[in-house]
């Protein structure tokens, strides 16, 4: 059986909010490393990969590996019944038909118990190759969100150019064009507001803004986002949490 207790229900709520517009029916794969999911959107253009490490739960008990087939719209309905500060416990049998979710308030005088019906989900798993990226940019997640929301007003695509000078997001559409350039800067007082660029070679790639705007729903999970790019490979957008991560991969747009 599985028993996994999370101090803050808000963590799972934010994870589900971040991915539920991209993927609907997913498996939570529970194993010794924690609770993981990997799922592609219907168009096979984007992939979400998430891990909530076992260390982030206390306790984390698992007798054998199990997959919990979950409809995220249904899970969202149940999670709405939890306060962000509630303690959340997930429980399931070894061959589960349902997932139990128990919410307890910090004062320990309210216990809510819900059962979510599980589904059989046949999932395609993508072998994601280990990639040495040519450029890794870490920046405030709120800044990345603002840039994507601004540029999507002008175009459905953005070109990201990473060089020693900085990172430039540019777009062009029917009404005109626009760009935002960020220079590398180190904020000593507030490291989360720094922009860092690690570069082995310059990279220029074009991506659909619709997906990037969608990824930015994960901004609540982390004040920092990391963009990893190499020419002609999918973009990796990572939001790291204290004990886990949400990663998005996005296939580029490529010229004929």
């Amino acid at each position: 059986m599985l028993e996994a207790r999370l101090e803050q229900a808000g963590v799972l709520k934010k994870v589900v909010d971040a991915i539920r517009d991209l993927v609907q029916d997913i498996n939570f794969d529970c194993n010794d490393s924690g609770i993981a999911l990997q799922a592609m959107d219907n168009s096979h253009v984007a992939l979400v990969s998430m891990l909530l490490k076992s260390e982030g739960f206390s306790p984390y008990r698992l007798d054998r590996n199990i997959a919990l087939g979950i409809n995220l719209t249904s899970l969202t309905k149940v999670l709405r019944c939890a306060q962000n500060e509630d303690i959340l416990t997930l429980k399931a049998e070894d061959t589960p038909d349902t997932l139990s979710l128990i919410f307890e308030n910090a004062e320990n005088d309210r216990i809510s118990e819900y059962e979510l019906k599980l589904m059989d989900i046949d999932q395609e798993h993508l072998g994601i190759p280990e990639t040495e990226y040519a450029a890794a940019i870490s920046m405030p997640s709120a800044e990345f969100q603002r840039i994507c929301r601004d540029l999507i007003q002008l175009s459905d695509s953005v070109t990201i150019e990473a060089s020693k000078e900085g990172v430039k997001f540019s777009c062009s559409g029917d009404i005109g064009s626009g760009s935002v350039t960020l220079r590398q800067q180190n904020n000593v007082d507030k490291p989360d507001l720094s922009t860092k660029i690690e570069l082995t070679e310059p990279v220029t790639l074009t991506f659909s803004l619709k997906y990037l705007v969608n990824f930015c729903k994960a901004s609540a999970l982390s004040s920092v986002v990391t963009l990893s790019l190499s020419n002609e490979v999918p973009l990796l957008v990572e939001y790291a949490m204290g004990s886990g991560f949400v990663r998005f991969y996005l296939a580029p747009k490529i010229g004929e």
Binding site: M40, S43, H44, V45, A46, L47, E124, H125, L126, G127, I128, P129, S157, T206, S208, V233, P234, Y249, A251, P252, K253, I254, G255, E256
Partner: peptide
Amino acid sequence: VKSQTTLGRFFNLS
């Protein structure tokens, strides 16, 4: 004109 690729072009489906 650039066209949208899919992840299957870069990753192996297993």
